[in-house]
Design a protein around this nucleic acid. Structure first.
Lengths: 220, 220
DNA sequence: ATACTTAGTGTAACATAAACACTTAATAAA
DNA sequence: TTTATTAAGTGTTTATGTTACACTAAGTAT
């Protein structure tokens, strides 16, 4: 008989942009293995629970968010969460603006913390690899989808939009070319609001016409 | 205690090109559920077996091939292979030239058969969805990688190469532009051999400089 | 009134992509 | 051996998209 049963976990790479840095949510593990090491939020998938549901549950419990952008990343073998080694982990990546995230300090004091991708601590399991994979996916998604909407507030300036791109791609973009291209894409519309309360010329605020994941022909 | 155990399967979309058609390998199920329906080759992942190893095992048993291009596609929930519903399937897609594939008629007489994507029979589980997903991935991979090498024989004519693209993308390409672009990519080299035994002017034979998956800047 | 800071805008050069038709080299048939 | 047939092979022009680049405008603070 071929059938066997595996222990299946999920791990989530939750990205946000804070202070012009791309950050990822990590928790300090309270249990063995890798006790006291930093790791991605995750956990076992329950009986009869769909993997995506499990990921959403983790997102809710660890980051206090629901209703944000999330997609499956990859299924990795044996992350080692189960001491017997017989485990796979289905990974997801999620994007949310910082304001939406309400970190849940759990009873196990796992101290969830956003770390800049440029200053990651040592990570448990193969979570470094997973984050690298997620970053690659995020970068390429920026180029042919509108997912950036999920990292920005409802109303934003053109500069905030450009900074999001620059932060994630880790390179500077030309202001005029960026605006030209983005306007042609027809993804955002200008509102009558302006960004006030700063001491310079106020910037016009924009919003996304649609906040659903959409694939574009080409992009950046 | 959160830990639970899931029944985990793998299903593989094996593509090949035959008679200028893109085809996928299907087997007729010998058991319930979906007995006598067509389905992707697949099976349960064994105790302590890595998912990719399981996929390679299926590839070997059902299509008689090893050492061909294969990559993970997506992990789907509950394909229904386990009657209790508590199952996930890790899917892969593989590419091989027809010559390499030696279909194994198994004792269970599962009659593995290549079906043109344009004439698929009714499929078991959610395998239609998986094939659609695989086709999308294959098409986009054609545009930014060199994977096409895995569908062609070692030596091939420029026309065979172009036909592979046309078959998969399901649209015609301009002969001169195609050659120009492909030559610039520097992926293939011409050999001194020619394609003989046909009644027209013999075509020069080419081979890939490297047969390892490589990502390109841009493509088609 | 002036200084400061970020917002906002257009054009020219360059690179890439698309459209398009004839000559060449072999085999087969007359 | 000549001619017909078939696919191989090859450049140029046009259109489109991408990159590089610098000044004026509109607010706030002093």
């Amino acid at each position: 008989m071929l059938r066997s049963y595996q222990s299946v976990t999920t791990d989530i790479v939750i990205f946000t942009i804070e202070q012009e840095e791309l950050k990822v949510l990590l928790i300090k593990r309270a249990k063995e293995p890798f006790k006291n090491k930093w790791a991605l939020p995750g956990g076992f998938i329950l009986e009869n629970e769909e993997p995506e549901k499990a990921a959403l549950r983790v997102l809710k419990n660890k980051a206090g968010v629901s209703n944000i952008y999330m997609e499956q990343l990859y299924t990795f073998p044996g992350s080692g969460r189960d001491p017997r080694g017989n485990v796979i982990t289905i990974t997801y990546f999620a994007l949310a603006p910082t304001e939406k995230i309400k970190i849940q300090k759990s009873k196990e004091t796992q101290t969830p913390t956003f770390y800049s991708l440029k200053k990651l601590p040592q990570l448990a399991f193969d979570h470094k690899k997973i984050i690298t994979y997620a970053l690659k996916r995020l970068r390429s998604k920026l180029e042919y989808t509108n997912v950036v909407y999920s990292l920005l507030p409802q109303f934003f300036t053109f500069n905030q939009l450009q900074e999001a791109y620059e932060t994630i791609l880790d390179r500077e973009l030309d202001k005029r070319n960026f605006r030209k291209k983005f306007i042609l894409l027809n993804l955002i519309r200008s509102t009558k609001k302006v960004h006030k309360g700063i001491r310079q010329r106020p910037a016009q605020l924009y919003q996304f016409i649609s906040c659903r994941p959409t694939e574009l022909k080409k992009f950046f």
